[in-house]
């Protein structure tokens, strides 16, 4: 099942499929879908991931002045609470928030953010590890 999820995420990252298609496929390979097919009781939907970690380490070409190390560990509960806060933004303010996000190059409707959408996203993150290496820095984003 893990391989299927990874394949779907890889296809999404490569642009072979759209987000909607990825969501549909992920829902098909989710534990609930599998257990429904086998007649087993569905697993607890809440993700077991507790922290979102971001690590920045100096790369092999980093000089002494740029040898920064950053280690940030954010509890998932904090992200969930933040999403809940976003859901109570009044409609009158949504437009200005969306406009500011658009100015910064983020095409996102803050009104479409829902607390219940976060768990599937976090579940998907469990299989995802982002590694960026530009020689000077190595950035790693993962959940634990």
């Amino acid at each position: 099942m893990e391989n299927n999820r990874r394949q779907i995420l890889d296809m999404l990252a490569e642009g072979k499929i759209q987000v909607e298609e990825a969501e549909r496929l992920l829902s098909l390979v989710s534990p609930e879908a599998e257990s429904a097919g086998s007649g087993q009781r569905p697993k607890e939907s809440r993700s077991s991931a507790k922290y979102l970690c971001v690590r920045v380490e100096p790369g092999e070409n980093a000089d002494e002045d740029h040898a920064e190390r950053v280690n940030i560990r954010v509890p998932m509960a904090l992200i969930r609470a933040g999403v809940k806060l976003a859901t109570v933004i009044p409609r009158s303010s949504e437009d200005s928030v969306n406009e500011e996000l658009k100015k910064r190059g983020i095409k996102f409707e803050i009104g479409s953010l829902k607390a219940e959408d976060l768990d599937p996203l976090v579940d998907a993150l469990q299989d995802l590890e982002v590694d960026v290496n530009n020689g000077r820095h190595t950035v790693r984003v993962y959940v634990e």
Partner: peptide, 28 residues
């Protein structure tokens, strides 16, 4: 009205969720 009513419990939830937050920055 809705943000006023819900913001208190949500801010409390955010405060509670801070447990475990770690930020560590090193440079030279």
């Amino acid at each position: 009205g809705r943000p006023m009513l819900y913001s208190g419990p949500i801010f409390f939830a955010i405060f509670c969720a801070l447990r475990g937050l770690e930020i560590d920055v090193r440079k030279r």
